[in-house]
C-alpha cells in the first residue's frame, strides 16, 4: 500500500506523515482533498504524525502548517528531513 503524508495547505513547507517512514522510503504527498501532489524521499526516519520537510528550508525561514506560521527553522533543513525540536523553534534565531 502507498505510504502517504498530508500537506494540509497549498503553501505549507512541511507535511504530516500518515505512516512511519524509514530513511530512503518513498513518501506520496496528498492534499486535504485526498489528491496526489508529489513524491519525495524520506532522508531519515519520520514517525507517524511527525512533520517532514517537503522542500529545502534554509535557517530562520518560517515553518508553514495549516497555511500559517507555526515556528521557524533553527538549522538548514533538506527536503525529506524530519522537522521537530532539533531544527524548529517558536521564534527565529537571534544573531
Amino acid at each position: 500500500m502507498k505510504k502517504r503524508a498530508l500537506q494540509i495547505s497549498l503553501n505549507d513547507n512541511i507535511a504530516v506523515a500518515l505512516d512511519r517512514f524509514l530513511a530512503g522510503e518513498k513518501v506520496e504527498l496528498y492534499n486535504i482533498e485526498d489528491q496526489f501532489i508529489n513524491k519525495l524521499t524520506a532522508t531519515e526516519e519520520i514517525k507517524y504524525l511527525h512533520k517532514i520537510a517537503v522542500r529545502k528550508i534554509p535557517i530562520n525561514e518560517a515553518i508553514i502548517k495549516y497555511g500559517e506560521v507555526v515556528g521557524y527553522s533553527c538549522k538548514d533543513i533538506g527536503a525529506g528531513e524530519l522537522v521537530h525540536t532539533r531544527n524548529m523553534a517558536s521564534k527565529p534565531q537571534q544573531d
Binding site: Y48, K65, Y66, E68, V70, G71, H84, M88
Partner: peptide, 18 residues
C-alpha cells in the same frame, strides 16, 4: 505532545482553532 510530533505552542494552538 512533543513525543507525538507537535513542536511548538503555535502549532498546537493552530490545530485547535481549526
Amino acid at each position: 505532545n512533543i513525543k507525538a510530533g507537535i513542536t511548538t505552542l503555535e502549532e498546537k494552538a493552530m490545530g485547535c482553532i481549526l
